[in-house]
Amino acid sequence: MPILEAREIEAGYGEVQVLWGVTVKVEKGSLTALIGSNGSGKTTLLRAIMGLVPVWKGNVIFNGQDVTKLSTHSRVELGMVMVPEGRMIFPNMTVLENLEMGAYTKRAEDHFEDQLEFVFNLFPRLKERLNQKAGTMSGGEQQMLAIARALMSVPEVLILDEPSLGLSPKLTLEIFQTIRKLKDEGVTMLLVEQNVHLSLAIADYAYVMAEGKIKIEGKAEELEKSEDIKKAYLGI
């Protein structure tokens, strides 16, 4: 049974429908990529999964429980955690204070020291900048902090929305190396990312979205090899 499943999701904004019967499954311990061009509905789906956008029709199932009607806060308590597009760190707080904000749930409180050690091993640079204001760090360091803050919540599923957005090619590679490390650590992830090549290179399974629908799905390595898929849906 998948740890996370979006079943036949329909959602949108106001009277504008964006998602049309979207179904996505995430297996425990896997990295699932959601790819497609801008405006295809990827971020809206993530927001619907997290309860940030109302689901008009369909269900969100997490660990066998229907969470469609639960608040975002309740979903985080259960172990669904999202790193939003644009990082959304607290710029006037220190690195440590940002990490503490990630550990506010009851499930996180009990694992604070262990998670702190985990994120410092993953991001040694954050340990060096523990008392630095987050807003004074580079874009790459801020993205590392955003991921680390999410990990402080002890997620069962980590949802990443465009983690390389606005980063240089070098920093993008660093972020993807980190995502690969998390995968090796057994962290379950759902990744939305514009960099199709890097996404398919590290993902286990992938969904291609276009016009608010899943157009094709399959093992990432198989999608990566398909020239027809690249031309038809990915613009590459």
Rank of each mutant, 00 (worst) to 15 (best):
V81S: 05
P91F: 02
A148P: 09
A108S: 09
M88D: 06
F120M: 07
G140Q: 11
N121S: 14
S138T: 12
E97D: 07
V119Y: 05
K133I: 10
G135T: 06
E97K: 04
E97N: 03
F118A: 01
K69Q: 07
E128S: 14
S71M: 02
N63W: 03
A108W: 04
Q115F: 07
E117Y: 05
D110A: 04
F90Y: 12
E97P: 06
A134K: 08
S74F: 00
E97G: 05
G64I: 07
G135P: 04
V83S: 09
K106T: 15
E97V: 04
V53P: 09
P84L: 03
E128M: 12
V83T: 08
N98T: 13
E85Q: 11
E117T: 10
V53G: 08
R87M: 01
G86R: 10
M80S: 06
G139A: 13
M144A: 10
E113K: 13
M101L: 15
V76P: 01
L122Y: 14
A146Q: 00
V119W: 02
V76T: 07
V83N: 07
R87H: 04
T72I: 13
V67L: 01
T136Q: 13
A103L: 10
G79N: 02
D114V: 10
N59G: 00
M82F: 07
P54L: 04
L99A: 12
N63T: 06
Q142L: 08
F90P: 06
A108E: 06
F120Q: 06
Q65N: 03
K69T: 06
M137L: 14
R75W: 01
K57C: 05
N59H: 00
N121W: 03
R125P: 08
A103D: 07
V67S: 00
V76K: 04
I89H: 04
M82E: 13
L122S: 14
P91D: 03
N121E: 15
V119G: 01
M137K: 08
T105E: 07
F90A: 03
Q142R: 10
H73M: 05
R125C: 13
F62I: 11
M82H: 12
L99K: 14
R107Y: 15
H111E: 14
D110Y: 01
V60R: 00
E77Q: 13
F118G: 00
T68P: 05
G79R: 01
S74E: 05
N92L: 14
E128V: 13
Q142F: 04
V81P: 05
M80H: 03
L52W: 11
M82I: 15
F62W: 09
Q143K: 08
I61A: 03
V67K: 01
P91R: 02
M101I: 12
L122K: 15
T105N: 09
T94P: 14
G79I: 01
M88R: 12
M80N: 05
E77P: 02
Q143H: 11
K127V: 04
F120S: 06
S74K: 02
N63C: 11
L99Y: 15
A103G: 10
M144G: 10
G86C: 10
N63Q: 14
F62G: 08
R107A: 15
F90M: 08
M93F: 10
T136P: 06
E141S: 08
N59P: 00
